[in-house]
Design a protein around this nucleic acid. Structure first.
Lengths: 211, 211, 211, 211
DNA sequence: AATGAATGAGCTTTCATTCAT
DNA sequence: AATGAATGAAAGCTCATTCAT
């Protein structure tokens, strides 16, 4: 069966092989960048981790920055995926917002490539910094939208801060938990930290229901 | 005795000059490390910034890691100074805790060496990581103590979380604000962010008084 | 099978080029180390002498010590070659022992890499010292064996010292001649010196025949 | 008593102090150079070993080469001392020659500064090399003289080599023993080695008496 | 005489990137 | 597509030497 495919699919197979190599390199990059700073990570480390030649890495990614950029892209893709899937869930806006935190925390604690993306944001050449920071802003916009919807559907009841301020607060808490979890145990306990934060956010965003 | 003094002073005078050089180098290191990652920062950058020879830098600090360690030590010293001075203030425990956040935020936004220390914690050789993280733990203990005292003096009234959990929460919020401020504008707006957080913490730690 | 060969040969062809480079570097290292002390010799000197980039030298040898180790290995290989070829010769044991001295003297006086090895033994980081000294011991064992055999085949007749002591004596004489020749004229006259030693050794090892 | 000397002797005392410092530095240099190669030995090692400032070392010796030269001079002085004292002894010329070897071996095995001198000869900047090698030649002339005298007084009886050749042989044997002892155990067993050589030399230089 | 401090040239080593096959 | 080999521009660090006191 493999033989019968050979003629026509040869080019496609070759393409296929290339894609596999590229993705193997990407995962390896995730593993390496999640373990060390951008500058400490050598491209040789990545190609070794993938068991693929350094030359090949350069064939698939132009240079070191491009490798980092690809990791960042993949990270944001995976985070956006969680974001979309949770946002489209049934339930109150507040519930979805809190579920979102849980979902992202879970993703971070489980996916080395996502962890790599997080580390990279903190130790990146200036040109790439914005790309990383941009995501925090996007994420904050999503939070703000959900809070606004919560005010409408009644799941958010506080009136003492603007939705933007509340979103910023949510963001700060999440980032703080994420940073401390990253420093302490490589994000293993991040989901737990987020779970402990949940009632606090509920009491802040919906103080009446907590009474 | 005048003669004997001249002998004893001789070495002391030398040390004096050395101390000045060393502290000039330390400030320069603060400036440089606050501008760039550990790996991107070259020791030549530091010695140039201080207007002192590279060899002299190596005379006073043994190697690059030691320079970073000295910056971390200086940072923690300065932060501990604020911490002590605020904690010994008059006023309720909760008030002092919140003033503490303000004080530290102010320090961070104003002192390049302290900013450098913060950056370094995130991008440091593994051997130095603990030293940096240790401070977060110490700081959290202080917060916990103040919360405990607050429960006694009545300034903290919540009973829904343990003091340890509340301290963790305060820590996460502060760290989150600090990280986002650092990314966004080099900590310029950190004090403002902390001011916005204040009422939230009051409502969480003393919900009754907020009613 | 023609196809499959092309695949297998590809890497082999590459290796070929690498091997040539490596051996060119090794010879250059021999030339340089035979001219100057280990510490005085700069790796740049070696790569320049070989007309190959410094980076390439580091590609093939990990660091300076490894270069020296490779030189030592090559030296010992060449000396062992002489040793084996002479030992397997026809003739009396004593004759072969003395021929051995001649052969090694000849090699030393002609081969820069071997001279380099000798120099290195005297000025080497401690980790490599043993490797150098080990050879002297091995060589002494060979001498001892030949002397033992000489006692059996009658070419060695003295009974006043043990074979081990006699071997030590031979070794000391050879080393002394080699060191002095090295100091005086870069080993040019070593073969001559060894030739002058020959009758002495004969009279010591076979006193009767000398009478 | 110290006080009563103070006025007039002040300058002399100062001189005295300088001499002590200088000799302390020289001994320290001996210790350091006997442990490591010229290039590996740092002047800081020497001044530290002496417990005297680096600046002071530069005051007493102009530069690194001068320190080495001073060590070499001191070594040769001490060796010459042994040489003179043994040569002026009663006894046959051959006996004095062999005693000389013993004496020098004893000195080498006991005196770090002398060991340092020996090491230095093998790892020295070219300008100083001759000074080191010169001593071997001088020493060989002494041996030759003694052998000549031995031929006259009857203690040396061989006629198969010229006195010069015999002296060379003695030198080679001694140097070989010394080099191997240095490599093996830091010259601890050199006297023993020389003792083992003694009968051999007797049989070579005075074959009849050995019969 | 003596010392702590300062200097800078020089060396080893690393590593992103390119090349040849 | 893939690979081993090659390159060279830094960067960290050392250390002989000099300086100021």
């Amino acid at each position: 069966m493999a033989m019968s495919e050979s003629r026509e699919n040869a080019p496609r197979r070759r393409q296929q092989r290339g894609i596999e190599t590229q993705s193997a390199l990407l995962e390896a990059a995730g593993r390496v960048f999640s373990r060390m700073e951008y500058d400490k990570a050598k491209l040789k480390d990545i190609s070794d981790d993938a068991g693929i030649s350094l030359g090949s890495l350069y064939f698939h990614f132009g240079n070191k920055d491009d490798v980092a950029a690809a990791v960042l892209d993949a990270q944001q893709e995976r985070m956006t995926e969680v974001l979309s899937s949770v946002v489209e869930t049934e339930g109150s806006s507040l519930g979805r917002l809190l579920d979102l935190l849980d979902g992202v925390a879970e993703l971070i604690s489980a996916d080395a490539l996502v962890q790599a993306g997080i580390r990279l944001v903190g130790s990146l050449p200036d040109e790439l910094k914005d790309r990383g920071y941009g995501f925090y802003e996007e994420w904050q916009r999503v939070a703000e939208t959900l809070i606004r919807e919560g005010l409408e559907d009644g799941s958010v009841t506080t009136a003492r801060q603007t939705p933007a301020e509340l979103a910023e607060l949510v963001n700060e808490l999440f980032v703080g938990a994420q940073v401390l979890a990253g420093m302490k145990d490589g994000w293993q306990t991040l989901p737990e930290r987020i779970r402990r934060i949940r009632p606090v956010l509920e009491s802040v965003l919906a103080p009446s229901s907590a009474a």
